[in-house]
């Protein structure tokens, strides 16, 4: 159930974090899991990524946990 803590370089290059803010209802579990990457909007509580505009977040073990914990499916990983 718990995802692997190690991610191969191949996986890092192909698996992407997808964020669907329309599904987010602001539980904040991603912020608790990886506060360096996730934050919540001051106005509507929805998820924000603390990355630059064109920066692709690395899919770390913490990101995988945040995806698993997200109660509303707002965070997912791409398959390709």
């Amino acid at each position: 159930m718990v995802s692997n803590d190690t991610v191969s370089n191949d996986t890092v290059s192909t698996v992407r974090l997808l964020v669907d803010r329309e599904r987010c209802l602001g539980a904040g579990r991603c912020v608790l899991t990886d506060p360096d990457l996730f934050d919540q909007d001051e106005d509507d509580g929805r998820v924000l990524l603390l990355t630059g505009p064109d920066e692709e977040p690395e899919v770390t073990a913490a990101v995988r946990r945040a995806v698993q914990f997200c109660p509303t499916g707002a965070l997912t990983l791409s398959d390709d």
Partner: peptide
């Protein structure tokens, strides 16, 4: 539900 929850959720953020 979504519309109402969004009215309150910023009051309960981690921050």
């Amino acid at each position: 539900h979504t519309a109402h929850r969004r009215m309150f959720v910023n009051e309960f953020t981690v921050r």
